[in-house]
Design a protein around this nucleic acid. Sequence first.
DNA 1: ACGCTTCCATACACTGCTGTATGGAAGCTG
DNA 2: CAGCTTCCATACAGCAGTGTATGGAAGCGT
Lengths: 192, 192
Amino acid sequence: MDVSRARLSPEDWTRAALRALAVGGVAAVRVDVLARDLGISRGSFYWHFTDRDALLKAALEEWERRFTAQVIEQLDGVADPSERFERLVRGALTDESVPGLQPAIMAHADHPVVRPVLRRVTTQRIAYITAIYQDLGLAKAPARRRAVVAYATYLGWLDLRRVPADLLPELTTSKEGEAAVKEIMRMLHPTT
Amino acid sequence: MDVSRARLSPEDWTRAALRALAVGGVAAVRVDVLARDLGISRGSFYWHFTDRDALLKAALEEWERRFTAQVIEQLDGVADPSERFERLVRGALTDESVPGLQPAIMAHADHPVVRPVLRRVTTQRIAYITAIYQDLGLAKAPARRRAVVAYATYLGWLDLRRVPADLLPELTTSKEGEAAVKEIMRMLHPTT
DNA sequence: ACGCTTCCATACACTGCTGTATGGAAGCTG
DNA sequence: CAGCTTCCATACAGCAGTGTATGGAAGCGT
């Protein structure tokens, strides 16, 4: 622990905003509360950002980069489409750096700041999944259909992660967790 | 339109609360705003309910009854398990009386008032789906696995409904919508 | 019509949060 | 170290929403 006052970057604020968003939704992104969490005064915030909405926008755009563009970029390095499919599904179901973030964003789809970002992210992701299905041999229309269903399953999986773990042990990556992931993998696979 | 002041029942408040909840989450359930929407003063509210939390609790319990207990009750009248399966899936994917309500509730799974209700609802629903899969011939463990995945797909489907319709025409019940429903039905069917 | 109960309006005190104004400390550069 | 820039603290005005207190109107039984 350093005693000297750590000077904050905008990323410190956006990360805190995403955490708050994940827990309590858009309304929980309060500069007041975030400042207390970061151990700093609100004076800092209004230097880095003009507005509360500006923070929200910046946070969501960071989310867009980290969890869409960046993921796609990494996967594009994988040549084999079957391998790409496997990695995408497994990664999506097991990794979750900010629990509850995706559900929180979906729940506020109508919010003026959320809407445009969510629109871009949803479009990109479904398009990417569709492309993978096409690479795996499906025609355009069925590939698209399967992509939408696959994405829905992913979203619902994240929703279910929000309920207490004792209710759904198959979601916490363990023995049962692996079985559930395999089940989904099989269900979403283009051959079945 | 009747000019006489309509006296409100608690159900008027809980219904309004569920609508607000669906749009803006728990934070949007404000007696202040609901009163304006209902064209009445807050004095009425504090006669029917002790608290803002009391309203939230009552609303969620009404949700529990209408969209879990009542649905299961109706489906229990259907003898053939295959028919029961079909009706449940189709109904779940097409009917949505309060758009966005389920996603909003999932997003606030940690909320002290939401948690216990959500816990009961999730448990009941997954248990019911599991039972159907067992009736269709699956053993307990695989039936449970499939039930969890099926429920996840349902939840994600409702999430996707929150994005603008022009992005996902397959969700608005139409020609493409029917194809998507059939796709899910096939994917979730125990034989595949 | 009378009184009693049910339901609602108004007014008030209070809290939590926003945004702004201003001063001051810490870091960088010559 | 002098001066400039970057970053943060404090203080203030203002608003939105909660909960309470109290009076009054509408419905109902007798």
